[in-house]
Amino acid sequence: MDKKHYIITSITLGLIGAASAGLIGAANLLTRKQIAQNELDKINSGIIEIFGKNASIESENSLSGYKYTNYSYYIKDSGDDIDRYAFKTTGSNSYGKISLLVGFTMKDSGVEFVGLSIIVNEQTYASTLVDNYINPLNSGDVSIDDVNCGATYGAKLVRNMINDAQIAANDIAEG
């Protein structure tokens, strides 16, 4: 192959790459607001699922220093002295991303787990997470550590994410 052919080949591939980047960028501009809105809607419905239909977010804080837990949501005061928090915990492995909302109440007696809701599940290995773990957990049939989602690989990640959310909840409770 001569030098000219190398240059033409490189330029062609570069142009295809640039055009692809442009198209993806344009698609991102068109969809990002809607995607963010969808995620917010999922968080709001997750909070209702965990704390009941009157629950809503009063304030949102981004967290740092935790491996998986990146947001905390303070739930509106429902007239009692109990503080209610939800934590968004997100983890990923080579099979995709999982994002969960973990709800806790903070009483004088300590931090208590209330419920768990799924926001994003891109993992094919965690296809049974809702049926095998989240639903039995929310109805009190299994303990928080008995993660079962069809594969050890996915279950380990989910367990670590929930433990991380518990640590974040304890840190907030301890002030």
């Binding site: 198209l23 993806i24 068109l30 969809t31 995607i35 995709g96 994003v120 891109e122 094919t124």
Partner: peptide, 23 residues
């Protein structure tokens, strides 16, 4: 490129389909 674009639009406008089909 087309798969990424389709994925973005599905996530935005058909979120249930996006989470059902996943990876």
């Amino acid at each position: 490129t087309f798969v990424t674009i389709v994925k973005m639009f599905t996530n935005a406008f058909l979120p249930e389909l996006y989470s059902t089909l996943g990876v």
